[in-house]
């Protein structure tokens, strides 16, 4: 666990050293703030105190940014050869994978933490804010981001080219984010059902309405785990030839 933490904080520091963290935080807070309070917002007109607009925007706001965060994680190490130096330190492959995953998660955590003023403002502005719904929404956001981060880390481990990693994870993400849902509505039967359950939006939307179903949580957690296990498999492929 200590090694994972050391790895994660090193990665997190490189996010901040390279400005990418600041750009992401500014963009996330700017976009969600703009849409939550100004554009398409009915917060001031209908007097409803809810963060639903925030969550609806947040569903998309980091979608493009997560691949940009994760693309370099293994691709760059593969390209420069530092992966060899890293894996010959006294860590396991799995610790390296989890450490990198945790670093993205930490950055996302910081972003969400910085959005708490929205929540606090809403609480002060209106009465009867449903705290349960908002907590459930935050949980949904974290879980969804975690799943996409894991997918991004996996695609990064497949190549030594960051652009390829970025595009791959964006395309895979797009399927989960949008295309599975769209396909499901076009067809019917079991396939449609499967696709519908694979779509992120289905699980996300019920959670931001405050419904925490164990199936939704299992969905996101298993996406994460699957991607991380695939990454570990990819790393250990160097042993076979």
């Amino acid at each position: 666990m200590k090694k994972i933490w050391i790895l994660a904080t090193r990665e997190l520091k490189t996010f901040f050293d390279s400005l990418i963290a600041y750009i992401m935080l500014a963009l996330f807070l700017g976009l969600t703030g703009f849409f939550t309070w100004i554009m398409f917002s009915d917060i001031f007109s209908n007097g409803r105190a809810s963060l639903e607009p925030f969550f609806n925007v947040a569903y998309w706001s980091l979608f493009f940014f997560i691949p940009a965060l994760t693309m370099k994680m293994f691709a760059e190490e593969n390209r420069t050869g530092t992966i060899e130096l890293l894996l010959t330190k006294s860590v396991s492959d799995w610790q390296v994978v989890v450490g990198k995953f945790l670093s993205v998660l930490l950055l996302i955590g910081i972003a969400l933490l910085l959005s708490l003023p929205y929540y606090i403002s809403i609480t002060y502005l209106g009465d009867g804010v449903d705290h349960g719904v908002i907590l459930s929404g935050y949980l949904a956001l974290i879980l969804m981001r975690a799943a996409y981060s894991a997918i991004g880390i996996w695609t990064s481990s497949l190549t030594n080219n960051q652009i390829v990693a970025f595009l791959l994870s964006l395309i895979i993400g797009l399927f989960f984010h949008l295309l599975f849902g769209m396909l499901a509505s076009q067809i019917s039967g079991t396939v449609s059902n499967v696709l519908f359950n694979l779509s992120t939006f289905n699980h996300f939307s019920s959670m931001i309405r405050g419904v925490i179903d164990s199936r939704d949580i299992i969905y996101f957690v298993s996406l994460c785990l699957a991607a991380l296990i695939l990454t570990e498999q990819e790393l250990s492929r160097r042993h076979q030839a």
């Binding site: 490189t14 050293d17 390279s18 420069t80 050869g81 530092t82 992966i83 060899e84 130096l85 010959t88």
Partner: peptide
């Protein structure tokens, strides 16, 4: 261990 080509985190 010092690998060939001495890979390091340049940043």
């Amino acid at each position: 261990y010092l690998p060939e080509h001495n890979p390091l985190y340049l940043d």
